[in-house]
């Protein structure tokens, strides 16, 4: 059963716990120029008193047909057969930034050695029966790790092309 991280934007409050948990899990230290895998985006619209806003916690969506894999000139990016995670092999990455132009979600970032860095879906944790660190920490239950089929079955969710995870409800909150 392939599982994916998905976000219920109605529950995401932009607190950033997932971002920090991810940094703790993956030993990412911003002061050393290491980029975060997960980020919080905020969108505000309208003017007082009629404003609406949204928070979205986002990381790599592990696209079903990943544009970054197609854009990578070296074969450094691959899809794990079992977990369907999109994985970067740092040894092969040449830091050309091609994936940055390929990814529709602004995911790829590069460390000081110009190696692309992004979410690996915590595959080892998942194999060990644990949840990805971001899902595990989420205080509102906005991030969930669910079977893809289950998510696909929830018709209230609209799909982002053929992206398997990170499915978002496309309604504004207010």
């Amino acid at each position: 059963m392939v599982k994916a991280i998905y976000l219920d934007i109605n529950l995401c409050c932009g607190c950033g716990a997932c971002v920090v948990a991810c940094m703790d899990q993956n030993d990412i230290f911003p002061e050393k120029g290491q980029p975060a895998y997960r980020r919080i985006y905020t969108m505000e619209e309208g003017q007082f008193p009629n404003t609406s806003f949204l928070y979205v916690s986002a990381a790599c969506l592990h696209c079903a047909d990943s544009p970054c894999i197609m854009g990578c000139p070296t074969g450094a990016i691959t899809k794990d057969r079992q977990t369907k995670a999109v994985i970067v092999n740092g040894d092969l990455c040449i830091g050309c930034h091609s994936c940055a132009l390929a990814c529709p979600f602004g995911v790829p970032r590069y460390d000081l050695e110009e190696k692309m860095q992004k979410c690996d879906l915590c595959s080892e944790r998942v194999e060990a029966g644990l949840q990805p660190a971001c899902v595990r920490v989420c205080p509102t239950g906005a991030l969930q790790f669910k079977s893809i089929n289950k998510v696909l079955g929830e018709k209230e969710f609209k799909f982002v092309g053929n992206i398997v995870s990170g499915v978002h409800k496309v309604t504004n909150r207010r």
């Binding site: 979205v56 986002a58 994936c99 940055a100 529709p104 979600f105 602004g106 982002v160 978002h168």
Partner: peptide, 27 residues
Amino acid sequence: AGVIKNALINSLINNNPVYSHSLPIVQ
């Protein structure tokens, strides 16, 4: 860069403005 590129292509194909509510939220 990638977001804009994909949105631009999407906008051309669907004849939508580049910034549109039909896009995935993150984009």
